[in-house]
Computed example of a mutant assay.
Amino acid sequence: MLTLALILGIGGSGLCYLSHPNQNLLRCGLPRSCRLLAGLLLLGGLLCWCWQLGISAGLFAWLVTIMLSWVIPPYLGWLLGARQAAPDSPNR
């Protein structure tokens, strides 16, 4: 059940990130309708965390999952963008 909660939380926050216009992983972001699915996945993840760990610990685990899922993608986009731009740079 904890694995399901983790998958739902990461999937929901990933969809939410990728449907935002300022994301930098995809050339064209996902449609705004994906935000509804992201919200449902996040809610399902919250329910799984709370059912398994209790309300306070479940809420904390859910927030940590979302926080880490939203912190990592911008750095991945920056890293991938820097690697793609490196062969074209004249200073190499």
Rank of each mutant, 00 (worst) to 15 (best):
66 I>G: 01
58 G>K: 13
74 P>G: 04
49 W>N: 07
70 W>D: 08
55 I>M: 12
55 I>C: 10
67 M>L: 14
46 L>S: 08
54 G>K: 13
54 G>V: 11
80 L>F: 10
62 W>M: 07
52 Q>P: 06
50 C>D: 03
48 C>K: 02
70 W>K: 03
72 I>K: 01
64 V>A: 09
54 G>E: 11
63 L>M: 13
48 C>D: 06
76 L>Q: 13
82 A>N: 12
68 L>W: 03
54 G>T: 07
82 A>S: 15
49 W>E: 03
65 T>H: 06
75 Y>S: 09
77 G>E: 01
62 W>L: 09
70 W>V: 00
52 Q>Y: 05
80 L>D: 01
65 T>P: 00
81 G>D: 03
54 G>H: 10
83 R>T: 12
66 I>A: 06
47 L>T: 09
79 L>G: 07
73 P>I: 03
62 W>E: 05
57 A>Y: 09
69 S>T: 15
46 L>K: 11
66 I>E: 00
68 L>F: 08
75 Y>K: 12
81 G>Y: 00
76 L>T: 14
48 C>R: 02
46 L>Y: 07
56 S>K: 15
73 P>L: 10
53 L>G: 07
77 G>S: 05
48 C>N: 08
82 A>W: 09
70 W>T: 09
61 A>D: 00
62 W>Y: 11
64 V>D: 01
53 L>H: 01
57 A>T: 14
79 L>R: 14
63 L>W: 06
70 W>N: 08
69 S>E: 01
79 L>Y: 04
58 G>E: 00
69 S>M: 01
68 L>P: 03
74 P>D: 00
50 C>V: 03
76 L>K: 09
82 A>T: 15
56 S>T: 15
65 T>I: 11
61 A>T: 15
49 W>S: 06
80 L>M: 14
73 P>Q: 00
83 R>S: 04
72 I>L: 05
54 G>N: 10
57 A>S: 14
48 C>E: 04
66 I>C: 06
58 G>C: 08
59 L>W: 13
51 W>Q: 13
75 Y>N: 01
62 W>K: 07
61 A>E: 10
78 W>R: 09
80 L>C: 12
72 I>W: 03
47 L>E: 09
51 W>F: 10
62 W>S: 06
49 W>G: 04
53 L>A: 14
57 A>I: 07
50 C>P: 11
58 G>L: 07
82 A>I: 02
59 L>D: 09
51 W>N: 14
68 L>I: 11
62 W>D: 02
53 L>C: 10
64 V>T: 11
62 W>T: 08
60 F>V: 14
56 S>N: 15
81 G>L: 03
82 A>H: 13
49 W>D: 01
